[in-house]
Design a protein around this nucleic acid. Structure first.
Length: 243
DNA sequence: CCGGTTGTTCAGCG
DNA sequence: GCGCTGAACAACCG
């Protein structure tokens, strides 16, 4: 379910509960659930794929990983990992990772690394990339410390849009191409976000899980590339290999 | 119905 | 102590 844009949508869907008091907490999470009881949600935040629920003096980090789901004002059959209930409604999270931190959330996060943040800093990404010269572009895009929020779908679409072959080496990209890659990582994430909101995400995929290249009609290559061996779809004809 | 997957962490090894 | 790799986790879709 979750790349960064999906988490931004979740945050928006929960705005009705911002500033509201939690009256009941349930769930099979191992954290101290009753810590939230009677406390007011100060705000919901997101950092890439991290969803953050901020309370006075502590915050929860929820990561949906690959299979996590949530329901707002409804429940699934399966037991919730965390259920926060308010006077008017509830939010339920399933099969996700939940951690509690007693820190100031602003001390823990660099918001300018999040490609969907208003504080997103492309120059910072450029500096970080220059330190990982030998990395494959397909790995670099999934590096959450550089492109927080970018997931596997965004990776594939960004590489196709910028006509960069996934096996390209970061250090071999011409400066202009590197800047383009960085810009598109954020730009496509916002497109993803808009399309996801109107349930048109798949309709706009150009390369991910496609059979042929929309540009040259050659068969799309599918391979499990990079450190995480993640599904990578690309056009060998249109995407240039810089190595 | 089996295989694959919008992700991350951690153990184990060299 | 490091970097790398593969396993583990888990639920839904096609």
């Amino acid at each position: 379910m979750p790349e960064g844009p999906s988490i931004l949508i979740l945050k928006e869907q929960l705005q009705a509960f911002a500033g509201k008091k939690v009256i009941r907490v349930e769930g099979n999470s191992k954290i101290d659930l009753q810590k939230m009881k009677g406390k007011k949600v100060l705000e919901f935040k997101s950092w890439g794929k991290h969803f953050l629920i901020c309370f006075k003096g502590f915050y929860l980090r929820i990561h949906l990983l690959m299979f996590g789901t949530y329901r707002i004002n409804e429940r699934k059959e399966a037991p919730a990992r965390l259920s926060l209930q308010f006077e008017k409604g509830e939010i339920n999270f399933y099969t996700c990772s939940i951690q509690l931190f007693e820190n100031d959330v602003n001390d823990d996060y660099d918001w300018d690394v999040d490609v969907l943040s208003e504080e997103w800093d492309p120059l910072k990404a450029e500096k970080a990339l220059k330190k990982t010269k030998t990395a494959n572009v397909c790995d670099a895009l999934l590096n959450q410390e550089i492109f927080s929020g970018v997931g596997n779908i965004i990776k594939n679409e960004v590489l196709f849009r910028t006509k960069i072959h996934p096996k390209s080496i970061i250090g071999a990209l011409p400066p202009k191409k590197l800047k383009e890659l960085i810009k598109e990582a954020s730009n496509y994430s916002f497109d993803f976000y808009e399309w996801k909101k109107i349930f048109e995400l798949k309709k706009h995929w150009l390369i991910y899980k496609k059979k042929e290249c929309p540009r040259c009609k050659v068969a799309v290559i599918k391979d499990h590339l990079g450190k995480g061996k993640r599904l990578t779809c690309f056009c060998d004809n249109c995407q240039v290999l810089y190595s």
